[in-house]
């Protein structure tokens, strides 16, 4: 399954997913009201230490920070230009700590377990006549459709390339939409043919 999950069996992998999610939620709530550089330095050391407990592969996951380098630099620059560099540093550190902590949960929790942990939150859907299984089924369908969509697009691109000798064009988007939408109609029919999202057990 497509995920950022890091295969492993560390202490962090074994913690229940719900607990980890709760910890991150509480952590970001608290850190939002903290503005001391010293506390953040401590947090930064602590969170890097968390990654270190996963071993070398864990530390390698720190590269996920690449995605926010742009933000951090831009942020410091803007604050520096407006003469509030101190505040800029605090904000940047908070950003790095919170991103690292949240990603730590993501890389140590399987997508399935994460899903199971949050599914009970959807139980009230029943009150609206929607099966509580619906969100899980939706997630599965997305994971099934996404690779197929990319396949449809690359086939169209080949056909386009074969006739125009050009790589790709926004013109492909409309036929892409039509072809793939037709597929989704068929899948909807196939789902209904096997009893639909609510299942067959509720009706005797």
């Amino acid at each position: 399954m497509i995920s950022m999950y890091l295969q492993g069996d560390s202490w962090a992998h074994r913690l229940p997913a719900g607990l980890k999610l709760l910890a991150v939620a509480l952590g970001s709530l608290i850190l939002f009201h903290v503005s001391s550089v010293w506390i953040f330095t401590g947090c930064l050391v602590a969170v890097v230490a968390l990654y270190a407990t996963l071993g070398r592969e864990g530390l390698a996951q720190l590269r996920l920070l690449r995605g926010i380098v742009f933000f951090v630099v831009a942020l410091l620059a803007i604050h520096w230009l407006s003469g509030s560099l101190d505040e800029g540093v605090v904000v940047a550190m908070r950003l790095v700590v919170m991103v690292l902590a949240a990603n730590f949960v993501t890389i140590t929790t399987r997508l399935d377990d994460m899903l199971d942990a949050v599914l009970p939150l959807f139980a009230p859907l029943k009150l609206f006549g929607v099966s509580p299984r619906t969100p899980a089924l939706g997630v599965t369908l997305v994971l099934r459709f996404a690779p197929h969509l990319m396949l449809v697009f690359s086939r169209l691109r080949e056909a386009w390339q074969a006739r125009t000798a050009r790589r790709s064009s926004w013109r492909l988007l409309a036929p892409f939409a039509i072809q793939s939408l037709r597929m989704s109609d068929n899948v909807a029919e196939a789902l209904k043919a096997r009893g639909g999202s609510a299942g067959l057990s509720s009706s005797p």
Binding site: E189, A190, A193, R194, L200
Partner: peptide, 25 residues
């Protein structure tokens, strides 16, 4: 409501009827 239990339906294009990412699911 009961028909999907008694009648199985197989379509022409398998890509358009599989609902799940893996065979087992």
């Amino acid at each position: 409501k009961e028909l999907p239990r008694h009648v199985g339906f197989v379509f022409q294009n398998p890509d358009h009827q599989a609902i799940f990412p893996t065979v087992e699911e």
